[in-house]
Structures are given as C-alpha cells and as structure tokens.
C-alpha cells in the first residue's frame, strides 16, 4: 500500500492521463520531489524552491496542509493526497 495522490486535470498531461498516481511516504515535499522523478516536470508546476506554489492547494486526507505542517506534513502509506489548483480570482461578490 502506498500514498494515493490525486492529480488535477491541468497536470494529467504529465502523468500520462492518470488522475491518480502512487507516491512514497515521507513529507509532502519529499513526496512531490519523488513524483517529479517519475513524472518529470510535475514538481516545478506544484512547487518552487521547496515551497508549494501559492495558488496550489495540497490536502492530506482532506485537510489543507497549510493548517498542518505545510511542506513538512508527514504522509504515510494509505493516506490520500489531493493536489488542487486554487482558482485565482475565485471570489464573486
């Protein structure tokens, strides 16, 4: 059993069309770096200099990692990680 990682549509071109891939346990940033080795280019779309990009939301088991330990949040086998682009300008009042 590995970490389940959900890939958003705009990044699925880099994962050969897969909407879910398997990742390794460790911190979130380690997980992303490992995914980048498997799917080159994925890492720089999600992170920059070891930090998650501001308009990319990462959830571990549906909790936003900014309210956990951000990039250093630990993920273990069986956890589910979702990568969701924040829609910039997504406020409508």
């Amino acid at each position: 059993m590995a970490v389940k990682v959900k890939i958003p549509v705009p990044l699925q071109r880099l994962t050969q069309g897969k909407d879910e891939v398997e990742g390794e346990s460790g911190t979130v940033i380690e997980l992303i770096n490992a995914l980048d080795r498997k799917y080159p280019g994925l890492g720089e779309r999600i992170s920059d200099g070891g930090k998650i990009r501001r308009f990319v939301n990462v959830y571990v088991n549906e909790e936003d990692i900014r309210f956990l330990k951000s990039e250093n949040t630990e993920v273990k086998d069986g956890d589910e990680v979702s990568i969701v682009p924040a829609i910039a300008g997504g406020c409508f009042l």
Binding site: P10, D48, R53, F55, V56, P85, A86, A88, G89
Partner: peptide, 11 residues
C-alpha cells in the same frame, strides 16, 4: 483568460 497555465497564479 485569467489563470497562469504553468503555476495557476492570477494574470
């Protein structure tokens, strides 16, 4: 258009 295709930032 309104979102950066690369990093999802606002244009």
């Amino acid at each position: 258009i309104y979102v950066c295709e690369f990093c999802f930032g606002p244009l």
